[in-house]
Computed example of a mutant assay.
Amino acid sequence: MARTDYQSSLEELRDDVLYMSELVAERLRTGLDALERKDERLAQEVIEGDDEINQMYLELEGECVDLIALQQPVASDLRFIAASFKIITDLERIGDLAVNLGGYTLDAERDLFPDVDMQRIGMTTLDMLEDAMNAYANEDVDACYAVADRDDEVDAMCEAASELVVRDLIESDHLGDEIGDDAEVESLMQDVSRLLLTIRDLERVGDHAVNIAARTLYMAENDDELLY
Rank of each mutant, 00 (worst) to 15 (best):
D117M: 05
A83K: 09
Q7P: 04
E61T: 08
E45Q: 15
L13W: 00
V210K: 15
L129Q: 07
A135M: 03
A43W: 03
E26Y: 07
E63A: 09
R27V: 00
D66W: 05
I179C: 09
H208R: 15
H208N: 12
G31W: 00
V210L: 12
T198S: 09
I81K: 10
L23T: 14
T124N: 04
A161D: 07
R37C: 00
E36I: 05
L13M: 09
I47V: 11
I68M: 15
G176I: 13
E40L: 12
N138G: 06
D142W: 05
S172Y: 02
Q72G: 07
D50F: 04
Q71N: 13
R41P: 00
L197Y: 09
Q119C: 00
Q44I: 00
M219W: 12
D181R: 15
A220R: 12
L18G: 05
A220L: 12
D140R: 08
E184A: 15
V166I: 15
V17K: 07
V166G: 01
A25D: 07
L42N: 01
E153D: 14
E11F: 03
Q55S: 05
L101K: 02
E203L: 12
A146E: 11
A2W: 01
S187D: 10
D77M: 07
I88N: 09
S76Y: 00
V165P: 13
D90W: 04
R3A: 06
L23M: 14
D142S: 14
L70W: 04
V65R: 09
A160M: 05
D16Y: 00
L97E: 06
N222W: 04
D173I: 12
V24A: 07
E163Q: 15
F113L: 13
P73V: 02
L112S: 06
L67D: 03
T30M: 08
D50R: 04
L129C: 08
L60V: 01
M189T: 04
S172K: 15
R167C: 01
D16R: 15
E221I: 06
E225N: 08
L13A: 02
E163N: 15
E184D: 14
D155P: 13
R41C: 01
Y6N: 09
T216M: 08
T89Y: 07
I170K: 11
L226K: 10
D152S: 11
D201L: 02
T89N: 10
S84M: 05
I68L: 15
Y57V: 00
D77N: 15
L42Q: 08
E109W: 01
E109F: 01
E63N: 10
Q71P: 08
E11R: 13
I121D: 03
V192D: 03
T30K: 11
L78R: 09
D151F: 02
D127Y: 04
E59Q: 13
A43K: 05
D50S: 04
L112C: 07
